[in-house]
Design a protein around this nucleic acid. Structure first.
Lengths: 198, 198
DNA sequence: CATATAGTTCAAGACCGCGTGAACTGCACC
DNA sequence: GGTGCAGTTCACGCGGTCTTGAACTATATG
């Protein structure tokens, strides 16, 4: 637990509180980190991406890859890849501490925004695809001839359905964005603001 | 809660109209069935559950397990399990044709309702769990002492966030239910309506 | 330049969910 | 009873994803 040259208080003191049972995480940290992991996994990302972000967010100060590795009991290579993803999505930032050579990583606060964004794209593309398929099916069916009008109507209805789902989905995304956006305002303070200093 | 008698028109006559009698799906059918499979998989169910339902829905008339097996190229055992699930969720019904001994399966039209319902339960339980975890983490953190107030606030914010997401989610479900409910009204005719005659 | 440490890449393997196919039950009809 | 077919159950294996660990690159230091 090397000294943090970063601006926070003495981290060593709090760390000693954590029973070094399974790693060095305090129980409450472990629970919270795990919660983030679950949420992120729920949205179709990797569990460990969530855990890493959660740890960085909770700690507030940038950690090195090595520290993350130890805290979350992940492999070196794994941490590297996870951080690359998170950085790529802009939810984690690579920072350099003045007279130190190693990279440190800090959590951006807009995890939720990123999630909704990615999910939005993913789902929008998906629904679009479905609708295209359905109309293609309809086209082929008409072309084939001998297909009961009954069935054509079914295809049509399925397409309408997809459209409605799509609309509901967009609404959901928008709602969650706005709703959460307000909350995000509250995030814009605390240790994370320090990032601006670098 | 087992099956019902199928009292619709002669299934055989309709069948002859349907494309490749001898087992293969018409291209347009394949596409549509696949689309349903994708959608259903997207919502966290098995792809083949969607394919089976899609086939039954498109065909309009009840099919036997054997027919499903051939059309979708699935194994006997697989079809059995898929049908069990679908029946259990109430989106497929087991029906008996008067002088025949085999079971046939017919699609209910409320696939969407079922999906939203299951998803709702699943997600509600999930979000509840997350929130419980977060408040547990907070409790432990307070108990432990020596934890920076900064971090307590973060836990709190995460909980608030979960709450908001939950609210957005509920809204989404409700919207999609209503929205789609209207569409479902339109579904209540055609061959499927015959089910009401039973 | 030699050495050490941070960071990246990727093949191998762990892991997990799904569908298969064979064994089994149940039922109808001969 | 016995034969045959519909339907169920479940151990196994296939195919996919995620993680690991080792080889490799890059960079700082004496």
């Amino acid at each position: 637990m090397k000294g943090y040259l970063w601006t926070g208080g003495d981290p060593g003191s709090q760390r000693t509180l954590a029973p070094p049972e399974n790693g060095r995480l305090a129980p409450w940290e472990a629970i919270a980190v795990e919660a983030v992991g679950n949420v992120i996994e729920f949205w179709g990302f990797k569990r460990n991406q969530g855990r890493v972000w959660g740890l960085l967010y909770l700690r507030g100060e940038p950690l090195t890859a090595g520290e993350i590795e130890r805290e979350l009991e992940l492999s070196k290579g794994g941490v590297s890849m996870l951080l690359r993803d998170l950085e790529h999505w802009g939810v984690v930032q690579r920072v350099r501490v003045p007279q130190d050579t190693v990279w440190r990583y800090a959590a951006e606060t807009d995890l939720v925004r990123m999630v909704t964004h990615v999910v939005e794209e993913r789902e929008a593309a998906f629904v679009t695809r479905i609708r295209a398929d359905l109309s293609e099916a309809r086209r082929l069916a008409e072309l084939a001839g001998g297909v009961q009008p009954e069935q054509l109507r079914k295809l049509e209805r399925m397409a309408v359905l997809a459209e409605h789902v799509e609309r509901a989905l967009r609404l959901f995304i928008k709602t969650s964005r706005l709703d959460v956006g307000g909350v995000l305002g509250a995030f814009r303070d605390g240790a994370l603001a320090r990032k601006g200093e670098r």
